[in-house]
Write a protein that binds this DNA or RNA. Structure first.
Lengths: 354, 354
DNA sequence: TTGTACGCGTTATCAT
DNA sequence: ATGATAACGCGTACAA
């Protein structure tokens, strides 16, 4: 029991055939006579050989059957966001027929030991573009020569993108608010770059996260001068914290908040109520994503519904294509505006009566 | 550009050193003079060498840095269940310092091509016990000689288990109902085995899923003869479908339903209301897990809160221990009973007044 | 501190 | 249908 594991050579020897023949029995790449197959299989059983070592096979073949999915955050945290969960769903579905598994990766290994983009045996990688470290990740992957697909981010030429009409969609929501008479609007943005701490910011050129920039641009198309507060992540709690700041000063209170995600919007709604404001009578709030936010009842967010699962599936299909040597095209998806109960006419401004 | 990728030998040659020296520069296992390091690094840069090929390194070391997490279901579907999500969270956290990544795997490859337990380059595996195929998965893993941890399932001796006091906890909920005067109770169970289609069943010995069996036993401790309906999965929709059947016949309607998961319970609540029953006035319903169920407001489930994240973390730590050659002990966690608004006194039976 | 030599376990190719 | 051979790219004793 304490000797080393049997290898395919051991099996071949035991069966009285050559290693290559034994190999073929397991891979099935070449016809083998029944008698031979039987002998090999018996020998394997006798030796407790359970099939080719994946590491060796992987080295020889140059394929590992692993597709990396790169997240920015704490892995568990990522699954808190229904949008990512749905994406994973589509992704898993699309890479399955390819015989690949998904390896969860973080773009920044905090411990320094972790298996990262640099060290994992990947056949391909999927980068999630709402990461502030997209550029770095991309560099690593390209240097390694690994096929890569980027969702929601500009990866430059040659890299298939899975995109969303972020700007146009966000503009739609902004127009909706404008039509309702809103003029004092604050944008509650997603993080603008890796490591960002929440706070106001002025310079749009500081933004290195593509999603954030695109959605902000959409809002700016309608409200060029809206103040912008960027959260440190897409969580309800972040939205709540941001909302407290946004609604803090009664004098400078906006009549509407354009949040860049539903989770942020949900937090903002809570902050508003906490501040004694009614939604939507005193303040209107829009979200983005179209997920089902828990605990927001009886409100229903006015938001932009994005096809998250489809995005994941498209990413998976692009990966599949590249792995099979085909070209993968970029694909663009469209959001659908959905009016909920969190937006309404702007309240009459107290300082400018009639 | 079209030649093959540079290897460490190429780098060594370019730098005028031996391959082993170049190797050492990258691995840092042995001191190297600054001058030499510099030359090697420069050569690497010049050749576009980005570090050791993970596949080759993995073969050589006998380690891949990958821990497989085996799910029964469609990968995306698994993340629909907050319990699993939380487990993943703890798991990821615990294996990170170990330098390992999580590979999402399914226990039954539907396509036949997939990279599964059999073919993936794993260092260790975590099996989720509420799978009807646990036994098969376990056999595969053990045959491969891979360290394995099982959450919620009996894996036999030598395999560390992460357990929950399912039976005791469920008994607590059942007692609660009994105390409230309930006598006609139906158990809404999780699947009893792989491939199970939802429906009533009589023979408790048919159950091959450990969690299902344990929780049912707890309910039986209090209600030995309760009828049992097993769903085909842990989803709200499954609970709804099951509930429709359970509440179908006005004559045989139970006054309480013991659901084996919160999601099933949530579905059952909806089914009850659909059938014109008030919860908890006409029918009481208990769940299991203690997750936040969306869209159930204003109800709050009476349920058993399990420490899902801790379970995941414990599993990860067990894996870490085994990988480091230490022994990993089995750990048992305890659920906490939480009374919500979905249980109340049994209604006076119309057929047996006072 | 650096180099030599070998093995890790497979599988593709080509010849028989 | 089967077998011989040669990589695949690296890490690590051990010797120098």
């Amino acid at each position: 029991m304490s000797t080393r594991r049997a290898t395919i050579s051991d099996v071949a020897r035991e069966a009285g055939v050559s290693p290559s023949t034994a190999s073929v029995v397991f891979s099935g790449k070449t016809p083998v006579s029944d008698a031979t197959r039987r002998r090999v299989l018996d020998a394997a059983a006798a030796l407790g050989y359970t099939g080719p070592d994946p590491r060796a096979a992987s080295l020889r073949r140059g394929r590992s059957g692993i597709v990396g999915v790169v997240f920015e955050e704490h892995l568990g945290t990522a699954f808190l966001d229904p949008v990512k969960t749905q994406m994973m769903d589509g992704l898993a579905e699309a890479v399955a027929p390819l015989g690949a598994g998904l390896l969860l990766l973080r773009d920044h290994d905090p411990t320094g030991v972790g298996p990262t983009l640099t060290t994992a045996p990947l056949d391909a990688a999927v980068l999630i573009g709402c990461s502030g470290r997209l550029r770095e990740s991309l560099d690593v992957v390209r240097a390694r020569g690994i096929p890569v697909v980027v969702t929601e981010g500009d990866a430059g030429p040659g890299v298939p993108r899975i995109e969303l009409d972020n700007r146009e969609a966000q503009r739609q929501a902004a127009s909706h608010l404008r039509t309702l008479g809103h003029r004092d609007v604050v944008v509650l943005a997603l993080p603008i770059r890796a490591g960002w701490e929440r706070g106001w910011f002025d310079d749009d050129t500081e933004i290195s996260v593509d999603v954030t920039r695109a959605r902000l641009a959409g809002a700016r198309d309608v409200f060029p001068d809206a103040a912008t507060y960027a959260a440190a992540g897409s969580f309800i709690d972040e939205g709540l914290a941001a909302g407290r700041v946004i609604f803090a000063d009664p004098e400078r209170r906006p009549t509407a908040v354009i949040a860049q995600s539903d989770l942020l919007a949900a937090g903002a709604v809570r902050a508003a109520e906490e501040a004694g404001l009614r939604v939507p009578e005193d303040v209107s709030i829009t979200g983005f994503d179209g997920i089902v936010v828990d605990g927001l009842a009886p409100h229903e967010l006015t938001t932009l519904v994005q096809p998250a699962t489809d995005k994941g599936r498209a990413a998976g299909e692009a990966v599949a294509a590249m792995l099979e040597g085909r070209d993968a095209a970029s694909i663009s998806f469209t959001c659908v505006f959905r009016e909920g109960t969190t937006t309404g006419p702007a309240p009459a401004a107290p300082s400018t009566p009639a």
